[in-house]
Each structure stands twice: as C-alpha cells, then as structure tokens.
Design a protein around this nucleic acid. Structure first.
Lengths: 198, 198
DNA sequence: CGCAAGGTTAGACTGCTAGTCTAAAACCTC
DNA sequence: GAGGTTTTAGACTAGCAGTCTAACCTTGCG
C-alpha cells in the first residue's frame, strides 16, 4: 500500500458508508469510485483492493481511538475516573465514525486476516487499559482482577457490542446516555450488596 | 430455503471450518461441496447461496444457545447464581462450536442483513436475560439497573468478545478459566470498595 | 525552457466464480 | 409402474475483480 495522498484519503469515508449499508461484498469497486469521485484505476494504484481500502479506514479510526484513549489515560485523576473517561472516549469515537465502525465490526473476519488491525486494537486499547487497571490497584480506586487481559477484553466488548447494536439498528448513538448504563455495570457490578458475595 | 434433510445438515459444519479460517469470500461454493461431500447442485437445490448456508449454521448454534440459556434461567437458584449459569452456558456453546461462532462474528455484516439472525439473538439471549435481571431485583440478589436492555448487551458483549479473542488467536477456549474472570467484573464491578462510589 | 520522473486516468481485456439451467438418474409412494 | 420429488453432473451466462496499456498531467530541476 503506497502512501495515500490527503486529497484521496479525505474522500474515502464515503466508501465506509457503502460498506456499512450494503456490506463489502455488495459494494463494487466501481461503486466506490463513483461515491468517492476517485477513479477506479487510481484506487488500484493505491490499494490492492477493497479490503485494503477498508483496512486504511480502520487504521485511521483506530488512530483516533488510540489518541482519545491515551488522553483519557494520562489525565491527573484517579484510575477509576480515568476508566470512565476511556469508556466515554471509545463511545465518542464510535459515535463520530459510525459507518467505519459498522463496517469494521461487520467485516471483522476480513479485518482479522489483516494482522495490522489486531495489533492496532491492542496498541490503541488493550495495552493502555491494562496499564490503567494496574494503576487503579496501586492508587486504591480499582479492585485487583486476577486476569487484567480478560478484564480489558470484557470492557472493550461491553462497550463495542452495546454501541454497535445502536448503530446496527440506525438508532442514534448518544454517548452521554449509554455511558452511565455501561459504567454502572462494569464499575459497581450487578450483584446486590445484600447478596452474599463470591 | 427448503427444509434441509438431516444427512445434509449433518455435513454442513465442515463448511463452517472453511468460513472460519478463510472467510466467506475466499470460500468457493465448490470448496464447500468438496469439504462437505454435498455436490454443488444439491447445495443450490437447498440454499440460495453461501450466506444462506452460513445463516443455517447460525440458526442451529443459536438454537443450542437458546436451549442452554433457557435451562440456566429456569433453575431454582437465586437470580445471581442463574446469571453465572447463563454466562457459563454462552461460553460452553461457543467453545463447542468454535468455527460457527468465528464465522458468525467474522461475518456479522452479512448476518446483519439476514434479519432472522437478529431476532434469533434477541430470543435466545436478550429477552431471557432481561427477565432474569428483573427477577434478580425482586429476589434481592441483583442490583437494579436503569436500563436492563443495555445491561443485557453489556453482558453479551463482554462474554462474546473475550471468548472470541481466544478463538481468533487459536488459543483453546476453556469456559472454566474464562468464566470467573468475566463474572468477577460484571458481578462485583471494578471499583474498589475503598473508592467513594458513583 | 525542456525534459525526466512519477502521479493520474480512461478503457480495453482476462480470468474466475456465482448462480442458472437442463436433463438424466435415483428414489419414493401409492 | 405411474407420477411425484430429490439428487446430481455438466454446460453455460453474466458480472465483477483485478491487470495492463498508453496517454496525459504535474512538478521540479538543470
């Protein structure tokens, strides 16, 4: 994949719309050319095919997510507070780029075969969140977990799937209303304090 | 889609393997014929195309999940205990049918366009879990949540994504070891009791 | 200015595969 | 054994991904 010039990169989000609502399969390369205004020959000059266009869009969105998450993690608050900021950040990025996120999740299979994507998710999310979980144990704001890797995946999955179900059904995704519901579960847990623990 | 005879249905899981490790795209209908031993013409006699074969496999696995979840929900224990059983049930089904689950998640986009799948997930999971959450509030074992719909999605997402990341990386998925880590988060929450709440 | 290097594009072309169709066999069921 | 349905091989079509060519444009440099 050659370095993609900015004027072209700027037009690609139109392709994400197509991927999101018809799927990668039912989107012809000619359709992408028509929707973005970038001619087919030019697309092939820069990308090996549709999935590389998709991968390019993912990288971009994941970079946003990495930035937002990094900013949330570096704030001067308690780890618990920063964790809520991480959840908000993920929701904000998803609300911002609904088409790309839908396309991403709807084509995880394809994306999964592009190893950079897996790495990008790890770098953007898992690594910083695991570090945050550690710090939370140290500053006393978070409970220690036996397996921080799994905990990070649980968080990611909780946010991703709930946000996604809004996107998939074309309901508007409002981070402000969704975030408290998710955080209530992952921070306070579902078990009533009256119930005998573990 | 005609009623699929049992001898044919029994051979289809071989197709799930192909979908899971090459993706739907890179699996030719002839490959499916070769892998399952069901001739191409016969496949087309019963199914409109590959995605219908995928959909058929999903329905089957989701039916298992519905059964297992229903059983977990109907046990005579406290709602909190039954909720752990639901998580276990989902993990067990996923561990049992890794290829179908990988194919399902890797092709959610396609699947999403097949409305029966969305309905099947709702019936198999969301509806019973929401009911369970209600009962938990009544029997005092679970904390009330402001939005049970979101809570159900959080649970589903937490389990699905963590299980999936094992499947995707070809690590064996062992429900016994994963389940406690997930449950620790969703039942007890991440916030330390020392931290001032909400 | 003139020219080289590389970006950009139209359009023709190839190859592959999904999906259709036909028609023949095999299998039922009454 | 007649009349239906299922099963299958194999030929065929249509459409799309991806390649290639050759022209055209831009930019920068001597």
């Amino acid at each position: 994949m050659r370095r993609v010039p900015a004027q072209i990169a700027a037009r690609l989000p139109a392709a994400a719309e197509l991927f999101a609502d018809r799927g990668l399969e039912d989107t012809k390369v000619e359709d992408i050319a028509a929707a973005t205004g970038v001619p087919k020959a030019t697309l092939y000059y820069y990308f090996a095919g549709k999935e590389e266009i998709l991968a390019f869009l993912f990288q971009d969105t994941l970079q946003h997510m990495a930035d937002e998450v990094a900013m949330a993690v570096q704030a001067p608050d308690s780890a618990a507070t920063r964790l809520t900021a991480v959840v908000d950040a993920q929701l904000r990025v998803m609300a911002d780029q609904p088409a790309v996120c839908q396309a991403l999740v709807g084509n995880l299979g394809r994306a999964g075969r592009i190893p950079e994507i897996a790495t990008a998710i790890t770098d953007a999310y898992y690594t910083p969140v695991q570090q945050l979980l550690d710090e939370g144990v140290r500053d006393g704001s978070l409970r220690p977990t036996e397996d921080p890797t799994t905990t990070a995946m649980v968080l990611f999955g909780a946010v991703t799937i709930s946000a996604l179900s809004y996107l998939a059904t074309d309901r508007p995704l409002s981070p402000e209303s969704l975030s408290p519901s998710i955080l209530a579960v992952v921070l306070e847990g579902l078990r009533s304090s009256a119930d005998q623990a573990i």
